[in-house]
Design a binder for these strands. Structure first.
Lengths: 164, 164
DNA sequence: TATTGTTATACTCTATAACTATA
DNA sequence: TATAGTTATAGAGTATAACAATA
């Protein structure tokens, strides 16, 4: 006979599967605002600590500084973030949101609610709370930083690519 | 004062965050076996229906057939899958696992258990079951196929890349 | 003509390393 | 010499389109 369980492990697989799904749906939604998920994360991080440098972002995101250049370039081109030379140390920039960015973030909040609502349509409010509570405990035990999505750095594929 | 909630929505965000984390940890583990997460998914799909064609995989995975070529090339080079020309319709291949692949899948089962255990260390057995039950209902309502991870096709970035 | 698999090509994402300006 | 940011370059992942063999 074949293997007893076709479906993988259990909650761990469901978590990965649903997480990927949730991320994809979220990407669709914010895409309508002209944003990518990384854009959204960056905006939130800058909003949380205005004036922070690209280096500090690179550290918190776990990516290399040159990556942040491209990321911020995106937001800059969209008119959502401003680079101001620091007057104290003219090597670095102080990153600030524009008024436009603050407007966009208002829309993001609405999008977030709708997203949550659609995603968890199968659960009633009590069940959603229980789910959130369980997930929070898992996230805490796993050492995840609240509010920081680890989807920035690609998980290294330590193997060869396609043939030719 | 600033926005009342720094942390995004709630369970939806936690789901995406934990899902990404779970996937990354799983990638680490199977990497020690010389496999990538796509490898694992493919092996399971072939094991579930030996002899299936690359086209059928492409459909179930939601990727383009040329992508499957590279994916199967990988497994082929590792000696885990065999392409046998179909005798009925010599256009397509029948994909089969090798003995080595079956051995590897045994190890994968052990890895899966350890992964689940580490990931959900914060929860006792009853809580794990409750979590799985909630997640299953969400996954069902969202129309996710049991056992198929949607991480194959990259979610389209419908926006410009880095500057130059 | 339609279908399975393949190759050729191009585009995006991302990291590494070299470079500029400032300290 | 060390640090913030940038540019140049390269590698992996993926899709589109053109192609070969078979039906």
């Amino acid at each position: 006979m074949t293997s007893p369980r076709q479906t993988p492990s259990g909650a761990a697989f469901l978590l990965a599967q649903l997480g990927s799904h949730a991320a994809a749906r979220f990407a669709e939604r914010v895409g309508e605002l002209g944003l990518t998920p990384p854009d959204v994360g960056l905006l939130r991080m800058i909003a949380g600590r205005p004036g922070r440098s690209q280096q500090s972002l690179a550290q918190d995101l776990g990516v290399v500084p040159s990556r942040v250049v491209a990321l911020i370039d995106n937001l800059d081109r969209k008119g959502l973030v401003e680079r101001r030379r620091s007057t104290e140390d003219r090597r670095n920039y102080e990153l600030h949101l524009t008024d436009e960015a603050r407007r966009v973030m208002g829309q993001m909040a609405a999008i977030g609610s709708a997203h949550e609502d659609d995603l968890l349509a199968a659960l009633d409010p009590g069940e959603r709370a229980r789910l959130a509570e369980l997930l929070e405990r898992v996230a805490g035990q796993q050492g995840l930083t609240p509010g920081v999505h680890p989807g920035f750095r690609r998980m290294g594929n330590r193997e060869a690519g396609p043939p030719a």
